[in-house]
Nucleic acid binder design. Structure first.
Lengths: 125, 125
DNA sequence: CCGGATCCAATCCGATACTG
DNA sequence: CAGTATCGGATTGGATCCGG
C-alpha cells in the first residue's frame, strides 16, 4: 500500500534534505512514542497521556497538533455529554511507521555493539 | 553484511525503547548530516566543517565526540608537521546509514503528501 | 474530559576569542 | 590545523493554574 517503489537512487543532497526534514518532524522527544501508542488503534487524549509514560499534557497537546498538521493523525470530536476527542493514525501515519520500525529493529539488534563501543571509549579515555 | 536478519517480531515496548534510544543518538541537528558527509570517505575536521553547511566548530566537535563514543566513527591522529585528524565511519556507522536511508527515501517519496496535509490543515483552521 | 496560558528552569547552540 | 572556553540568546519542556 506504499505509494510507489520510486527511483531507488537518490542524490546525497536529496538524502540530506529529506532526512533533515523528517527528523525535524519526528526526532523530538515524544512524537514516535505517541505514534507507536496510536498504532494499537484510536484512543482518547487522557488515555493516551496515561499510556505514554512521563509526557505532560502540554507536550502531548503540542505533539498531537503537529502530527495532525502534518497529516499523520486525525483528531475527531465525538459530542457526548462529556468532552470526547479521539486520535487515530491516518494512512500516511501508518506508512511512516514502516521506516521507523526498520530503524527501531536495527537499534534493537545492534544495541550490544553500541554498548561495547561505549565501554571501550570510556576505558580508553 | 548486516549482523543478522534477527527475529522479525519485536514487542511494542521494545520498539519504543529502541527507537527512543536511537533517536536520542541521531535525532539532533547535525549527527545525520555529519554521517552522510563521512559516507563519501575519511575526511579531516576543517574539511568536514566546510562540507556541512552552517555547523559551528563547537557543535561539530560535540557531534563527532558522541559518534566516536557510540562507535559510529573513528578519530585518527596522523602525526605530520601540521596537526592532522581524520574521521571515518566504522562498519557500525555504515550499517546505521542503511535504516537512515530508508527513512530519507520515504520522506522524499512522501513529501508531497505532507505538504498537502499542511495546506488542508491551515485552510481548515 | 480536553485542553490553553503562563511561568520558569534546563538545555541547546551560535558567536567570539583563545590555545597547542 | 584542530580544537577549547566562555557568554548569551533562543528553544525545550515541566509544573501549575485556568477555562469550556
Amino acid at each position: 500500500m506504499k505509494p510507489e517503489p520510486v527511483e531507488p537512487e537518490l542524490s546525497p543532497a536529496e538524502i540530506c534534505r529529506s532526512v533533515g526534514e523528517v527528523l525535524d518532524q519526528i526526532g523530538d522527544k515524544w512524537t514516535v512514542l505517541v505514534m507507536r501508542t496510536l498504532a494499537a488503534g484510536p484512543i482518547r487524549f487522557n488515555e493516551l497521556a496515561r499510556r505514554v509514560p512521563g509526557v505532560s499534557r502540554k507536550m502531548l497537546t503540542a505533539t498531537l497538533r503537529r502530527l495532525e498538521c502534518d497529516g499523520f493523525i486525525t483528531r475527531t470530536q465525538i459530542p457526548t455529554r462529556q468532552s470526547w476527542v479521539e486520535y487515530a493514525l491516518t494512512q500516511l501515519g501508518r506508512d511512516l511507521l514502516g521506516p521507523i520500525t526498520v530503524l527501531a529493529e536495527w537499534a534493537f539488534a545492534n544495541r550490544g555493539r553500541v554498548l561495547e563501543a561505549r565501554a571501550r571509549f570510556s576505558e580508553r579515555s
